[in-house]
């Protein structure tokens, strides 16, 4: 909220908006909290938090290998605990793990996984849905990652 107010005041000081417009914008901002909180309540009421992360892999091979199916259901609580476990890893071990990950060509920093950001991460995962279809001449692979 303070950020919005500061932006309005900055626009006023730069002459982009008049004093009347700034006053109207600030009063509109002051009216927003009750409306936005009602919206949050309705959102949390309708949108249930996901309980599981599900990974499904379907691979169809026209050759001798035959079809392969993988279906994994991981509780979100396990993800939470896993992130907390990562927070316990000593810095030296994290550094070595990061180096190994970078050597594999994966640009990921394990030290950025922090328990403080855990709920935000879980919230973002609730909207996650990844579908990957790969078709070769003999193989058809379908990967689906989603939350439920």
């Amino acid at each position: 909220m303070n950020e919005h107010r500061r932006q309005i005041l900055q626009m006023l000081s730069e002459g982009k908006i008049s004093a009347d417009e700034a006053e109207r914008l600030i009063s509109a901002l002051e009216e927003r909290p009750s409306g936005s909180s009602q919206q949050d309540v309705s959102d949390s009421g309708t949108k249930a938090r996901p309980k599981y992360l599900r990974v499904q892999v379907d691979s169809e091979d026209d050759g001798h290998e035959g079809p392969t199916k993988v279906n994994v259901r991981v509780p979100m609580q396990l993800l939470r605990a896993g992130v907390k476990l990562a927070g316990l890893i000593p810095p030296q071990a994290l550094h070595r793990a990061n180096v190994a990950i970078h050597e594999k060509g994966i640009p990921f920093d394990l030290s950025q996984i922090k328990p403080e950001n855990l709920e935000e991460l879980i919230d973002q995962l609730s909207d996650l849905s990844v579908d990957v279809d790969q078709k070769d001449h003999a193989t058809k692979v379908k990967v689906k990652v989603f939350c439920e």
Binding site: K69, P75, Q77, K84, L88
Partner: peptide
């Protein structure tokens, strides 16, 4: 190993509790 033992116990317990409802299925041919 410079790991907080109480934190490790707490996280270990949470992982144990979170294992409920875990499901892994693999089918080949």
């Amino acid at each position: 190993c410079r790991i907080d033992p109480f934190g490790a116990f707490s996280v270990g317990w949470q992982i144990l509790r979170a294992l409920n409802d875990t499901e892994v299925e693999i089918e080949h041919r």
